[in-house]
Amino acid sequence: MAEGEGGGDKKELEKKVVHTYPLVRNSDMIDEMKLESVEIVVTACEKHSANNELAARMIKEQMDKKFGPPFHVVVGEGYGFEITYECKSLLYMYFAGTLAICIWKA
């Protein structure tokens, strides 16, 4: 029983860890594009960690430049959405443990 308790404590400790790595939740982009997009998002969100608006703008501009407009970007900690997107252009990911980023083209 002592062992069981120990295990429980360990689990609790583990749970407290907040993961910050980029986690792609849903994407239908081709792998190369996805990788590049994730990189763009990571760079932007790290640069503007305190200002989601600027981060979103930066992501959008870079995406437009790289893959052609018009891209739409949402960066935030709490929101809901229902979007119609052009196939092969959706990326929905989490970053830094609290941010959800949705990128699509329409």
Binding site: L23, N26, G76, G78, F81, T84, Y92, G97, L99, A100
Partner: peptide, 18 residues
């Protein structure tokens, strides 16, 4: 071709996914 997608972003959802 187009498709629709919808999701909700909430802190606990993000946490659980992580």
């Amino acid at each position: 071709p187009k498709a629709t997608y919808s999701a909700n972003v909430l802190q606990w959802i993000i946490y659980d996914e992580y």
